[in-house]
Design a protein around this nucleic acid. Structure first.
Length: 493
RNA sequence: GGGCCGGUAGCUCAGAGGUAGAGCAAAUGACUCUUAAUCAUUAGGUCGAGGGUUCGAAUCCCUCCCGGCUCACCA
């Protein structure tokens, strides 16, 4: 981006020139802080306990966020990753180089400071400046100190400004890290092995979504960005990695809104000898442990609702719940036209849905999802909606599948995995047929290489995919996915 | 894609046909315990872009760009 030259930048460029003239490197590399701002505060507490007023000389550093000139005393605030601390440069405490340099410092510059920590008469922990080093000259002004940066577009496009001006955003970054750390810890404790599977794939299978397409020159072939990690993780299970998972980015070429970003993070796991009941237990324990370890409690506020993550979650039979909430029984409405009719009757707009599965999806999200506030599993989905899930033992049009919902949001999707290669082939072929019939609706894709793997034998397996960004939204009480993804997708301007 | 709301100084915002405004930030000066420092002075604008109406448009109309919320689509 080209920088427009306004007065502020002109004045800073001039200061830069003066620095060069005086032989001061505005971008040096030789300053090593001994104490971050938090360590400074700890140090102050320590020496005060010992009855001392001033610590030894320490080195600290950060970005200058305020300069208050009081004649021959200058107060500065510096901000580092952990917080802020005040500096006091008094005319008779600073060296000559600092006297000259301090006139050339601006809000936004990175500075290193050398001096003892003490407390001012107003009780403010402060580093008394013996010497200041410029660590990096900033040429552009920062957002305003009091109102901060509010423009949402600028916050997303220039997240670094958001992180500087709105320090609560740093908390989101750190808490997201904590959540994913706790997630890995849980999986490790459960004996899972984390793996990496391809992001560039020849067939975007394992889910129903519109893929991003790209091209590899040397191989001279079209490739796609993965829409799911499922089929590669199952290949690992075929290979004998019995408990396997991946935390990774998926890419779906679809709409963008407060719950959807074209690239998003999921955790998918597969466990041999498990079925969907075992997976349900794992999911509720996983959420419970993460929430408890990150927030110190099972009960957290999300928007207007208090969510309780203490296991077990409520389990609702999909068919029974649909009958209860909509009067529609999918066993009876087993034909597109009948289902469409019944849904119209209860006031659902079905003009955009073509297939039976599409209609069911709509019915669930319209009649069930909004009311699923507390963590809840919907259980036992129709076969037609679930090409990768194993048939129920009791019922040939139901699969052993569940989805988890929290605060009206779908948060995970799981099943007892289909490991019958012949049935899987039929299901894929059916998906391909449906794609021809309804080209506007997304379908899963037949992945021959995966079928070959299945033909070698996959043990009975239970698997789940969890939306990590949504999990972070819930735990951190954020209503937009853009708040938990540091650089959300926006139009380029 | 539809509806609603918004885009004015680096930032936060006011201005709703009649000379483009404030606070912070910036520049100059005063001030050795301030912390949204204070005080004085100064400078800073393609009012998102383009067209139209008008004697005159930031303001009214049209088209477009960017964003937010929402509905639709989509997991």
């Amino acid at each position: 981006m080209e920088s427009e030259i306004n007065e502020i930048i002109k004045s800073r460029l001039k200061k830069l020139e003066i620095l060069h003239e005086r032989g001061i490197d505005p971008y040096p590399t030789d300053f090593k802080p001994t104490h971050n701002t938090k360590a400074c505060l700890d140090l102050l507490n320590d020496i005060e306990k010992k009855g001392l007023e001033q610590s030894e000389v320490i080195y600290s550093a950060g970005r200058i966020t305020a300069i208050r000139k009081m004649g021959k005393a200058i107060f500065l605030d510096i901000l580092d990753e952990l917080g802020k601390i005040q500096l006091l440069a008094r005319d008779n405490s600073i060296d000559d180089n600092t006297k000259e340099l301090i006139e050339l410092l601006d809000i936004g510059d990175w500075a290193g400071v050398i001096g003892p920590v003490f407390r001012t008469r107003r009780n403010e922990p402060t580093i008394q400046v013996n010497s200041i080093k410029l660590l990096s000259k900033s040429l552009k002004p920062l957002p305003e100190k009091w109102h901060g940066l509010k423009n949402v577009e600028t916050r997303y496009r220039q997240r670094y400004l958001d992180l500087i001006a709105n320090t609560n955003i740093r908390e989101i970054v750190k808490q997201r890290d904590n959540i994913i750390f706790e997630l890995r810890k849980f999986m490790k404790e459960e004996g899972f092995t984390e793996v990496d599977t391809p992001i560039l794939v020849p067939i975007p299978a394992g889910g129903m979504a519109h893929p991003f397409k790209t091209y590899h020159n040397a191989l001279d072939r079209e490739l796609f960005l993965r829409i799911a990690t499922e089929l590669y993780l199952k290949r690992m299970v075929v290979g004998g990695i019995e408990k396997v998972y991946e935390i990774g980015r998926l890419f779906r070429n679809e709409g963008i809104d407060s719950n959807h970003n074209p690239e998003f993070t999921t955790m998918e796991s597969y466990e041999a000898y498990a079925d969907y009941n075992d997976v349900m237990k794992m999911v509720e324990n996983l959420f419970g442990q993460i929430v408890f370890n990150v927030k110190g409690t099972y009960e957290i506020q999300y928007g207007e609702n208090k969510l309780n993550f203490k296991p077990p979650w409520k389990r609702l039979d999909l068919r029974k719940t649909l009958i209860e909430k909509s009067g529609i029984d999918f066993n009876i409405c087993n034909d597109v036209e009948i289902l469409k009719n019944e849904m119209s009757k209860i006031g659902i707009d079905v003009r955009n849905q073509l297939s039976w599965a599409g209609l069911m999806d709509k019915l669930i999200s319209e009649k069930l999802e909004p009311d699923l506030i507390q963590p809840t599993f919907l259980i036992d989905y129709p076969l037609e909606m679930s090409p990768l899930a194993k048939l129920s033992k009791e019922n040939s049009n139901i699969v052993e599948r569940f989805e988890g919902f929290i605060a009206g949001m779908e948060i995970c999707n799981a099943f007892t995995e289909l490991n019958d290669p012949l049935d899987q082939r039929k299901r894929f072929e059916n998906q391909e047929k449906m794609r021809e019939e309804f080209p506007e609706e997304e379908r899963d894709r037949l992945d021959e290489d995966f079928l070959v793997a299945l033909e070698h034998g996959m043990p009975p397996t239970g698997g789940v995919g969890i939306g990590i960004d949504r999990m972070v939204m819930l735990i951190l009480n954020q209503s937009s996915i853009r708040e938990v993804i540091s650089f959300p997708q926006l139009r380029t301007i």
